[in-house]
Measured scan of single mutants.
Amino acid sequence: NMTTNERRVIVPADPTLWTQEHVRQWLEWAIKEYSLMEIDTSFFQNMDGKELCKMNKEDFLRATTLYNTEVLLSHLSYLRES
């Protein structure tokens, strides 16, 4: 059983600085953390943090459901504000 610390993704605090690998790690973490289903992860495959942060609700909806979109966008905006 993993502790919270072991599951925590170590990525730069500012999502606009993320590499493609960071985006992948964040997505994998969010899927596990929030038990998200039905995400087309290939949609995010060649995307870095700058591109991710430019995405709006409609962009996310092409890859996943409305619920997942709201979870991911709210977590992303939380990270950008902190």
Rank of each mutant, 00 (worst) to 15 (best):
N1K: 04
N1R: 09
M2S: 09
M2P: 09
M2V: 02
M2E: 04
M2R: 14
M2I: 10
M2F: 14
T3K: 15
T3P: 05
T3S: 14
T3Y: 06
T3Q: 08
T4N: 14
T4W: 11
T4H: 08
T4R: 07
N5H: 10
N5R: 11
N5M: 08
N5A: 12
E6Q: 07
E6W: 12
E6C: 06
E6D: 07
E6Y: 05
R7M: 09
R7A: 05
R7H: 05
R8H: 11
R8G: 03
R8K: 15
R8F: 07
V9C: 13
V9E: 15
V9P: 13
V9H: 14
V9R: 15
V9T: 13
I10F: 06
I10T: 14
I10D: 15
I10P: 15
I10H: 11
I10N: 15
V11L: 15
V11G: 14
V11T: 14
V11A: 15
V11K: 15
V11N: 14
V11M: 15
P12R: 10
P12T: 12
P12G: 11
P12H: 09
P12M: 09
P12V: 03
P12A: 07
A13G: 15
A13E: 15
D14N: 10
D14E: 14
D14Q: 15
D14I: 03
D14S: 06
D14L: 03
D14V: 04
D14A: 06
P15E: 01
P15A: 07
P15G: 00
T16V: 10
T16A: 14
T16I: 11
T16N: 06
T16F: 12
L17P: 00
L17W: 06
L17M: 04
L17R: 11
L17I: 13
W18Q: 01
W18S: 00
W18D: 01
W18P: 01
W18K: 00
T19S: 09
T19A: 05
T19G: 06
T19E: 02
T19Y: 00
T19P: 00
T19K: 08
Q20G: 10
Q20C: 07
Q20Y: 09
Q20N: 15
Q20M: 13
Q20L: 05
Q20E: 06
Q20W: 08
Q20D: 10
E21R: 11
E21H: 15
E21M: 11
H22N: 12
H22A: 05
H22P: 00
H22S: 05
H22M: 13
H22L: 04
H22T: 05
V23L: 07
V23M: 01
R24M: 08
R24H: 07
Q25S: 05
Q25K: 13
Q25F: 09
W26R: 01
W26K: 01
W26N: 02
W26M: 03
L27S: 03
L27M: 10
L27F: 14
L27K: 02
L27P: 00
E28M: 07
E28G: 07
W29P: 00
W29K: 12
W29M: 15
W29Y: 10
A30T: 10
A30S: 13
I31W: 03
I31F: 02
I31M: 14
I31R: 14
I31L: 05
K32Q: 10
K32E: 12
K32P: 04
K32V: 07
K32C: 04
E33K: 11
E33W: 04
E33P: 00
E33G: 01
E33H: 06
E33A: 07
E33I: 03
Y34K: 11
Y34P: 00
Y34H: 09
Y34T: 02
Y34Q: 04
Y34I: 00
S35P: 06
S35I: 02
S35C: 07
L36V: 06
L36W: 01
L36C: 01
L36E: 02
L36M: 10
L36K: 01
M37F: 15
M37K: 12
M37T: 14
M37L: 12
E38N: 04
E38C: 08
E38R: 06
E38Q: 06
E38H: 06
E38F: 04
I39P: 02
I39A: 05
D40H: 03
D40C: 01
D40M: 02
D40L: 00
D40I: 02
D40K: 05
D40E: 11
D40G: 02
T41E: 10
T41M: 12
T41R: 10
T41S: 08
S42T: 13
S42V: 10
S42M: 09
S42A: 11
F43K: 08
F43T: 09
F43E: 06
F43G: 06
F43H: 07
F43L: 14
F43A: 10
F43S: 11
F44P: 01
F44G: 02
F44M: 04
F44W: 08
F44I: 05
F44T: 03
F44C: 08
F44A: 09
Q45A: 13
Q45Y: 12
N46S: 09
M47R: 05
M47Y: 14
D48K: 06
D48W: 01
D48T: 11
D48L: 04
D48P: 05
D48S: 12
D48V: 13
G49T: 00
G49A: 00
K50L: 08
K50H: 13
E51K: 12
E51C: 06
E51P: 01
L52T: 00
L52C: 02
L52Q: 00
C53V: 12
C53S: 06
C53L: 15
C53F: 13
K54Q: 10
K54T: 06
M55A: 08
M55I: 04
M55P: 01
M55V: 04
N56Q: 11
N56C: 07
N56M: 12
N56E: 15
K57I: 07
K57T: 09
K57R: 10
K57D: 05
E58V: 07
E58T: 10
D59Y: 11
D59I: 02
D59V: 06
D59F: 08
D59S: 08
D59Q: 09
D59K: 10
D59E: 07
F60S: 01
F60A: 01
F60L: 08
L61C: 04
L61N: 04
L61H: 04
L61Y: 01
L61I: 05
L61S: 09
L61G: 06
R62P: 06
R62E: 12
R62A: 07
A63D: 13
A63P: 00
A63M: 13
A63G: 13
T64R: 01
T64G: 08
T64L: 05
T64I: 01
T64N: 03
T65D: 07
T65L: 02
T65Q: 06
T65I: 00
T65C: 11
L66Q: 10
L66F: 02
L66H: 12
L66P: 12
L66S: 13
L66G: 09
Y67C: 10
Y67W: 07
Y67D: 11
Y67M: 09
N68T: 08
N68P: 02
N68V: 04
N68C: 05
T69Y: 05
T69R: 02
T69L: 02
T69F: 01
T69H: 01
E70D: 14
E70A: 02
E70K: 07
E70I: 02
E70S: 09
V71I: 15
V71M: 10
V71Y: 05
V71G: 02
L72C: 04
L72Q: 00
L72K: 00
L72R: 00
L72F: 06
L73G: 05
L73W: 13
L73H: 07
L73R: 08
L73F: 09
L73K: 06
L73S: 09
S74L: 05
S74V: 02
S74K: 15
L76P: 02
L76M: 06
L76T: 00
L76R: 02
L76N: 01
S77T: 13
S77F: 08
L79S: 15
R80S: 15
E81D: 09
